[in-house]
């Protein structure tokens, strides 16, 4: 589904991704671990095509097509969807106004409105300015709700668990699983073949209690340094911290 090879990216003339390789096959969801500042958000913004992230080398292949030159919305039309860690507040623009454009006519459908209000408790956000005064958990919920209505084939989540209290984490997990499911039924999430694919960047890994991932990668200083089983890697990171990963890499380099 997504293959990134030898990706070098500059921001304001400074190289931040330094030859990154990553492959996510169809129906697989991967976790991306890494300490703050390791480049996870830069990678996500680059996959999304944000213009300030300049690809100087390498390529991003999505569904067999090089998307390096595509604009943000063209990538979305190809099937990529992202939930941001800290999305901007847009004054005067109501969530409802955005939904009217994303799913034209839907807002007039009673069933859709009921689902939105009752199942996801989104009613109170509709006439509020996008992300304005939302709590950490509300931001994640609103982001995931937008994913749910647009149903991307490939889901990118940037720190979906940061700033979310444990009580809401389960709900966030359910919304992710529902977005990943192919035919809108929650029960399908345990069948990996039925799933859409995705990439979940998380430094605390707490969301992985609720969302199954097939593989994990550790990112350090702009590169993927380590790949493996998500549960094992998560355990290592939780018990020894990212400093262990850094020292491990230093050890590998010494041996080289």
């Amino acid at each position: 589904m997504l293959t990134i090879s030898d990706l070098h990216v500059e921001v304001d003339g400074k190289e931040v991704l330094k030859g990154l390789d990553l492959t996510i096959p169809d129906h697989e969801v991967h976790a991306l671990f890494g300490p703050n500042g390791s480049g996870k958000s830069v990678l996500i913004s680059t996959i999304m095509g944000y213009p300030e992230y300049k690809i100087t080398q390498g390529e991003i292949i999505f569904n067999g097509k090089n998307i390096n030159q595509l604009s943000i919305d063209e990538r979305v039309r190809q099937g990529i969807g992202a939930s941001e860690q800290r999305p901007p507040t847009i004054k005067g623009v109501k969530l409802e106004n955005l939904l009217e454009l994303l799913v034209p006519g839907k807002m007039k459908e009673e069933a859709f409105k009921v689902e939105m209000v009752e199942r996801f408790n989104m009613g109170k956000f509709l006439d509020r300015d996008i992300n304005d005064g939302f709590s950490g958990g509300e931001i994640k919920k609103s982001e995931l709700f937008l994913m749910l209505v647009t149903k991307p084939k490939f889901l990118i989540l940037d720190e979906p668990d940061s700033g979310v209290d444990p009580e809401h984490l389960k709900k966030i997990g359910e919304m992710i699983n529902e977005t990943l499911s192919k035919n809108d039924k929650v029960k399908d999430y345990c069948d990996p073949v039925a799933r859409n694919s995705g990439l979940i960047a998380t430094h605390s890994a707490s969301i992985l209690t609720y969302v199954h991932t097939d593989k994990a990668h550790v990112m350090l200083d702009g590169r993927i340094r380590c790949n493996g089983n998500p549960a094992v890697m998560m355990e290592q990171i939780r018990s020894k911290g990212y400093s262990y990963c850094i020292s491990c890499q230093q050890q590998i380099h010494k041996e080289d």
Binding site: I72, D73, V76, P88, I90, K91, N97, L101
Partner: peptide
Amino acid sequence: ELNYLQSKGLNEMQAIALIVRGF
């Protein structure tokens, strides 16, 4: 704001129009 709205699926013109409408 512009990038964000585009990342949700709006094209550039729609995104600008929506931001201006909000403004």
